[in-house]
């Protein structure tokens, strides 16, 4: 066999595998349809209740008719392959999607019998009630102390310096960062390690006194040790807050959450107790994802 033939053959096989890949892509990007959710989406006395939430980015229908309750003092994990709409859904809960041009959210999201997705709602008190921790730690380029005091300051929560001081200290303690930074509160928050920065962001969030904390893949930028510290922290914070965490890691979801929601192509496919989802998934797609067939 001449070298030319070999090259030709290689190109040919490349081509077929490329065709296969294109086909796969096609099935993934095909305009998806709305599906029924498997499992119990409602809980008793929910903190947040979502009815038929849809998100559109221009033409793209990113989240389709999601119904879901978030209970009090529970950690609920959202899992699913990337681009499945879990982060987008999360950002509906404190209206962070407002900041994205061309993004439209429909449906109702109730907190305290009030639809927070209604047009007249001011996002300022909402975001004070629903805090958020982002994928990449994003401390402000200010001192550690100023970072934590930022929220109480803008909302005017403290009446005097002593109260503010107390809020900062308590928040840092709750975020488990106090012991590490108590001697260097004046140093810039950006000088901390990645895991410390993320805990600083958590402290900054809880300093405002929210009821719900949204976490958008909070550990994806961290090493395993820092991740373990944050996961412990999430478990402790559960006593005070409802926590919604989006994660890529199924292990993490299994470790920290009580309930788990599985998203696929903008649909909420299945919701249930975390143990049930990971040991005995009902939906075929959930099972495929859990067993690592894609994702």
């Amino acid at each position: 066999m001449s070298s030319v033939d070999m090259i030709e053959k290689a190109v040919q096989s490349e081509r077929t595998s490329f065709r296969q890949a294109a086909k796969d892509m096609d099935s993934l990007t095909r305009r998806p349809e709305q599906r029924e959710t498997v499992g119990e989406v409602r809980v008793e006395d929910p903190r947040v209740r979502c009815n038929d939430v849809n998100v559109y980015y221009g033409e793209k229908h990113a989240v389709m008719g999601v119904n879901l309750d978030i209970g009090r003092n529970e950690v609920i994990a959202m899992i699913g392959p990337s681009g499945c709409g879990k982060s987008t859904f999360l950002r509906c809960l404190n209206r962070m999607n407002d900041t994205i041009v061309g993004c439209r959210v429909t449906g109702q999201i109730f907190m305290d019998d009030q639809d927070i997705n209604a047009s007249g709602i001011d996002v300022v008190p909402l975001r004070a009630m629903v805090g958020m921790v982002f994928q990449k730690p994003n401390p402000f380029p200010k001192s550690i102390w100023e970072n934590v005091a930022f929220g109480p300051r803008i909302h005017g929560l403290a009446h005097n310096k002593a109260e503010l001081e107390e809020m900062v200290v308590t928040s840092l303690q709750r975020a488990g960062l106090w012991e590490e930074v108590k001697d260097r509160l004046e140093q810039p928050g950006t000088g901390l390690s990645g895991g410390q920065q993320q805990r600083l962001c958590i402290a900054r969030t809880i300093a405002v006194g929210p009821e719900v904390i949204l976490m958008d893949e909070p550990c994806s930028a961290l090493d395993p040790i820092a991740t373990a510290v944050i996961e412990d922290l999430i478990d402790e914070l559960r006593g005070h807050y409802s926590i919604v965490i989006v994660t890529h890691s199924m292990q993490q979801a299994a470790r920290v959450s009580q309930r788990t929601a599985y998203f696929h192509l903008g649909n909420l496919i299945e919701v249930g107790e975390t143990t049930q989802i990971f040991t005995n998934p009902v939906h075929k797609l959930t099972e495929d994802y859990i067993t690592g067939r894609f994702g």
């Binding site: 404190n94 962070m96 900041t99 996002v123 300022v124 008190p125 909402l126 975001r127 004070a128 805090g131 958020m132 982002f134 990449k136 994003n138 401390p139 402000f140 380029p141 930022f150 929220g151 803008i154 909302h155 962001c201 900054r204 969030t205 405002v208």
Partner: peptide, 15 residues
């Protein structure tokens, strides 16, 4: 200025 800083402030309820 990175968008993440804006997100951080908006997420805390800053106008």
């Amino acid at each position: 200025v990175p968008q993440s800083l804006r997100d951080g402030a908006y997420g805390l309820g800053a106008t």
